[in-house]
């Protein structure tokens, strides 16, 4: 039982972090906070992939004398790509926030909704 919990602790905490990010995105009205929530979600997905790629007793996948067991390099490569893409999408989201502020004068979802209703 203890072994089962230790073996799945990483996955569960990652899911908890994911859900915290998800909750921030759907329950908060402030756009900047929504994007921070999206980023938390993103980082937790990275952690999930890296956790799956880990091999106990292994080392960083750099070939060297005296090591025979390495972690799986493939998830590392995928996540390297994902981090850079993540920053690009964050930048686009933040640019949208700046543009929304210009058009509506606010970045709170409720106020934007009210302005749309009163038109």
């Amino acid at each position: 039982m203890m072994e089962f919990i230790l073996g799945h602790y990483n996955y569960w905490i990652v899911i908890f972090l994911m859900m915290l990010g998800f909750y921030t995105v759907i329950s908060r009205g402030n756009m900047v906070k929504k994007i921070v929530g999206l980023n938390i979600f993103q980082v937790s997905v990275f952690l999930l992939y890296i956790s799956i790629g880990n091999v106990s007793g292994g080392t960083t996948p750099i070939i060297a004398e005296g090591f025979t067991r390495y972690s799986n390099p493939l998830p590392h490569v995928l996540i390297l790509t994902a981090i850079v893409v993540g920053v690009a999408t964050t930048a686009l989201g933040l640019a949208l926030v700046v543009r929304i502020k210009e058009a509506y004068g606010t970045i709170e979802e409720d106020e934007i909704h009210d302005q749309d209703q009163s038109l």
């Binding site: 980023n39 980082v43 990275f46 890296i50 956790s51 790629g53 880990n54 091999v55 292994g58 080392t59 960083t60 996948p61 750099i62 390495y70 972690s71 998830p75 590392h76 996540i79 390297l80 981090i83 850079v84 993540g86 920053v87």
Partner: peptide, 15 residues
């Protein structure tokens, strides 16, 4: 700690 040093560099610099 999870043996992904390249990812750690990128996350620290970019993230």
């Amino acid at each position: 700690v999870l043996d992904a040093s390249d990812v750690a560099f990128t996350e620290a610099a970019v993230g």
